[in-house]
Design a protein around this nucleic acid. Structure first.
Lengths: 239, 239
DNA sequence: CAGTGGTCTAGACCACAGT
DNA sequence: CTGTGGTCTAGACCACTGG
């Protein structure tokens, strides 16, 4: 419910308190004490329930931790499952320079598989974008992305972006959820040419169905050189 | 903070309300209305803040959803990231019969890689458990699991369990968090024999470091037949 | 219009930590 | 002992929804 804009400029008290505390503990080490509830009551001249509402939000967020009888403290950051990252972001995190060469970018009619994955009907218009991706100059993977044209009108005309996820983000359509499948295989002839592999070399195949809210915004199939790419994930919750 | 036992038998009012509502909406379709806050105030003879505390918990849990001006409703189940499942559980979910053949189960001294992954010192005692796993009778994967002997004393003597995760769970050590790496490769000679593969066949390699709380309880390396196994995951949050 | 959730007050008593 | 968070009360006004 954060930041309701209904009352516009009006600053809700619990939001004021919450953001004050958030700023105060920003960068503080886990275990550092936050102000006590009664101290905040006094400082802001509000009721204790209002302060608790503010602190509750930060506790739910995982920023603070309450210890009865002792106080409220900065929590150890929670372990979080892997988030959805784009190729560019992933390579950046590994300290590699990501490059991308568009091999194909056009409007197509969805085939049966892509249509089903994108929640469309066969024959509906989709954008097909094929890229060869390099890391530090070396071919890393070949990616075919399919996008629902209805969701991103004018995408092909607007000049291809460097990062698909950036482009989707600017339209409020960055996927936050995905269904992935991963398998090992042997490279195909065509793939071998693009990836500079020899017949019989192993590859990692990664299919993704990326969703933003309820909308399927991206379906992609990527084939990675097995000798250059290892996928890392963190799974589960809590810690 | 659920279910504090400090006050033992005493039933906190917000807990009573919460569990009443939880039971009431159990199995209800998403979108079904929950009782209104004022109705619960009347029914339980409590203050509205108390009811809100109860409902807040269910909202945070993702069970309920508030819509201002309209009411409180059963929320659509949240999409959740993949949870940690054991081989047996995963095969069961796919409707396959999982079998497991122990090839090796003994105490060893940790090598450098295993020691680091288990947060031990090289030479510390670890349990090494190697199994060939079949699904519906067909060889599926070969798994080497390494366990910290200090955490599970008497493990080898107690008779090997069917499911490692079940065994860990009974000791309160079921991993809820893992760091995984996945890569494609070509099968080795020894692996080919166990998995009934031919030289050059592709395999999927999966390494896992499984944690329960702060403790690393499991380190495993599994090699899957690429032609029989596709890994499925759901990543991200919210929906 | 009546009903809903969202915000807020000014108190209160409790169980528990640490001194 | 004081101070902390945990629980709880009995009201209040607000913005919004729907009939």
């Amino acid at each position: 419910m954060d930041e309701l804009l209904v009352t516009e400029g009006r600053a809700l008290k619990h939001v004021q308190v919450r953001e004050y505390v958030r700023a105060l503990v920003a960068g503080a080490a886990p275990g550092s004490p936050a102000p006590s509830e009664r101290e905040l009551v006094h400082r802001f001249g509000v009721a204790r329930m209002t302060v608790r509402q503010a602190m509750d939000a930060l506790v739910v967020e995982g920023l603070l931790e309450r210890i009865p009888g002792r106080g409220t403290f900065v929590a150890r950051p929670r372990r979080t499952a892997s988030t959805l990252t784009s190729f560019s972001e992933e390579m950046a995190r590994r300290g590699l320079l990501a490059e991308s060469q568009t091999l194909l970018a056009r409007r197509e009619q969805a085939g049966p598989g892509v249509a089903r994955a994108l929640n469309l009907t066969e024959g509906d218009a989709v954008i097909h974008w094929r890229r060869l991706r390099r890391a530090d100059g070396q071919p890393m993977c070949l990616e075919d992305a399919y996008l629902n044209e209805v969701l991103i009108p004018g995408f092909l005309q607007s000049g291809m972006p460097t990062s698909l996820y950036d482009a989707l983000e600017s339209r409020g359509l960055r996927p936050t959820w995905a269904e992935d499948s991963i398998t090992a295989d042997v490279v195909s002839e065509e793939e071998a040419e693009h990836l500079a592999l020899s017949p019989g070399d192993p590859v990692l195949r990664h299919s993704r169905r990326g969703l933003a809210g309820e909308k399927v915004v991206e379906v992609s199939r990527t084939v990675y050189r097995a000798d250059r790419y290892t996928m890392w994930l963190q799974v589960g919750a809590e810690g």
